[in-house]
Deep mutational scan, measured.
Amino acid sequence: KYSDMIVAAIQAEKNRAGSSRQSIQKYIKSHYKVGENADSQIKLSIKRLVTTGVLKQTKGVGASGSFRLA
């Protein structure tokens, strides 16, 4: 599940300011076997996790910027 992968990526990075979408994508692609549409799936999952309150956006708008666990 992409949401689990995103949470794992943010936990692994341990950046106080949060993790960027690009760094999350890079982590997921190197640690998991994902399909061609992974980028758009990650983007959608990040937006969903922010609206449900699992992630907090520290910089930027939408799916860009930095995110950390709430």
Rank of each mutant, 00 (worst) to 15 (best):
Gly62Tyr: 06
Tyr2Ala: 00
Ala9Leu: 07
Val34Tyr: 03
Arg21Gly: 09
Ser23Thr: 08
Gly35His: 06
Ser20Cys: 05
Ile6Val: 09
Gln22Cys: 15
Thr51Ala: 14
Lys47Val: 09
Ser40Glu: 14
Gly62Val: 05
Lys47Trp: 15
Arg68Asn: 06
Ala9His: 02
Lys1Tyr: 11
Ser40Arg: 15
Val50Gly: 02
Tyr2Trp: 15
Ser3Leu: 09
Asp39Ile: 09
Ser20Tyr: 03
Asn37Asp: 13
Gly65Ile: 15
Lys59Cys: 14
Gly18Glu: 04
Val61Glu: 11
Lys14Glu: 08
Ser30Gly: 06
Tyr27Ala: 00
Ser45Ala: 15
Met5Lys: 03
Asn15Val: 05
His31Trp: 04
Leu69Ile: 09
His31Pro: 00
Ala17Asp: 10
Lys33Gln: 11
Leu44Met: 11
Ser45Thr: 15
Leu55His: 00
Gly53Gln: 03
Lys47Ser: 09
Ser40Cys: 11
Leu49His: 00
Val54Asn: 02
Tyr2Arg: 01
Lys56Asp: 05
Ala12Glu: 04
Leu69Trp: 03
Ile46Leu: 13
Gly35Phe: 04
Asn15Pro: 02
Val50Cys: 15
Gln57Phe: 15
Thr52Gln: 13
Ala17Phe: 14
Gly65Cys: 15
Ser19Trp: 04
Ile24Asn: 01
Val50Met: 04
Glu13Arg: 07
Arg16Val: 11
Gln11Trp: 08
Lys14Tyr: 08
Asn37Gly: 08
Glu13Trp: 05
Val34Asn: 03
Gln41Phe: 10
Gln41Thr: 05
Lys26Ile: 09
Gly18Lys: 02
Lys47Gly: 06
Gln57Thr: 07
Tyr2Thr: 02
Val7Trp: 03
Lys26Gln: 12
Ala12Phe: 06
Gln25Glu: 13
Asn37Ser: 07
Arg21Met: 15
Lys43Ala: 15
Lys14Gln: 12
Met5Pro: 01
Arg48Asn: 10
Glu36Cys: 11
Gly18Cys: 15
Arg16Gln: 10
Ile28Lys: 01
Tyr27Gly: 00
Ala63Asn: 13
Gly53Asp: 01
Ala9Cys: 15
Val7Tyr: 04
Ile46Lys: 02
Tyr32Cys: 05
Lys29Arg: 08
Val7Ile: 14
Gly65Glu: 14
Leu44Ala: 12
Ile10Gly: 00
Lys56Tyr: 12
Lys56Ala: 08
Asp4Thr: 09
Lys56Glu: 13
Gly35Leu: 15
Phe67Cys: 04
Thr51Arg: 14
Ser40Ile: 13
Gly53Ile: 04
Met5Glu: 01
His31Phe: 06
Ala9Asp: 02
Lys1His: 11
Ile42Cys: 03
Ala9Met: 03
Tyr2Lys: 01
Gln22Trp: 09
Asp4Gln: 10
Val50Leu: 11
Lys29Ser: 06
Ala9Thr: 01
Arg68Cys: 12
Ile42Leu: 04
Gly18Phe: 04
Phe67Gln: 02
Ser3Ile: 11
Ser3Val: 12
Lys43Glu: 15
Ala12Ser: 08
Asp4Ile: 11
Ser30Gln: 11
Gln25Lys: 07
Gln57Ile: 12
Val7Cys: 10
Lys1Glu: 09
Asn15Gln: 06
Ala70Thr: 07
Gln57Cys: 12
Gly62Leu: 05
Asn15Leu: 05
Thr58Phe: 08
Leu55Ile: 09
Arg48Leu: 12
Gly65Ala: 15
